[in-house]
Amino acid sequence: MLITQDVVPPGRRAQLALVLGSLSAFGALTIDMYLPAMPGMAGELHTSPLQVQLTLTVFVVGLALGQVIVGPLSDAWGRRRPLLAGLILYVAGSLWCALAPGVGWLLAGRVLQSLGAAAGTVLARAVVRDLYEGTAMTRFFSTLMVVNGVAPIVAPVIGGQLLTFTTWRAVFGVLAAIGAVLLIAVVFTLPESLPGDRRAPAHPGATLRTFRTLGTDRHYLRYVLAAALMFAAVFAYISGSSFVLQEAYGLSAQQFSIVFAVNGLGIILCGQLNRMLVGRVADEHTLLRISLAVAVLGSAGVLACALFDLPLALLLICLFLLVSMLGIVLADATSLALAGHASAAGAASSLQGLLQFLVGSLAAAAMNLSGHVTATAMGATMVVCSTAALAVLHLRGPR
Rank of each mutant, 00 (worst) to 15 (best):
A136L: 02
N274R: 02
A98K: 08
P39M: 05
S114R: 02
G93T: 03
G371L: 14
L321G: 15
A108Q: 04
V91Y: 00
F235N: 01
A347Y: 02
A391V: 10
E247H: 05
L183A: 14
L288D: 06
T216R: 11
L273M: 12
N274V: 12
V383P: 03
V244A: 13
G327M: 04
M378F: 09
G120M: 00
R222Y: 01
M276K: 15
H203R: 05
L312M: 09
I178S: 02
L54N: 08
F320Y: 10
L208A: 12
M41L: 12
A391W: 02
A345L: 07
L315S: 15
F308Y: 11
L182Q: 06
G40K: 09
Q246G: 06
M382N: 02
S291I: 10
I238R: 01
S48R: 13
P201N: 10
V302R: 11
L369F: 03
P36R: 09
M41W: 07
G173D: 06
L144H: 09
Q5R: 14
R139P: 10
V323D: 05
G250Q: 08
F308T: 09
I258A: 09
T143P: 00
S324E: 07
V302E: 11
L99E: 12
G264L: 06
H285V: 07
H394Q: 15
A170D: 01
Y249D: 12
D6F: 03
L336I: 04
A295E: 07
M41G: 03
A389G: 15
L330E: 04
A117C: 03
L312S: 08
H203Q: 04
A17E: 04
A28L: 13
V359Y: 00
G134K: 02
P201I: 02
S350H: 00
P398F: 04
L214G: 09
P398M: 09
S193I: 07
M378A: 09
L358K: 00
P39I: 03
V122N: 08
G271E: 06
A232F: 00
F188N: 14
Q5C: 10
L297C: 13
D32V: 09
V58P: 08
R396L: 03
V7R: 08
I88K: 05
F260E: 06
F188P: 11
I268P: 04
V171D: 07
Q246S: 11
I317P: 11
R125H: 14
R275F: 01
L287Q: 09
T213P: 13
A64N: 05
R399K: 15
I153G: 03
Y220L: 12
P39S: 10
A313L: 13
L175K: 00
L45W: 10
R218C: 03
I88C: 14
V68W: 00
E247T: 10
R280T: 04
G196K: 07
L369I: 11
V58S: 12
A108S: 08
A293F: 06
G279K: 12
A227S: 07
I290L: 14
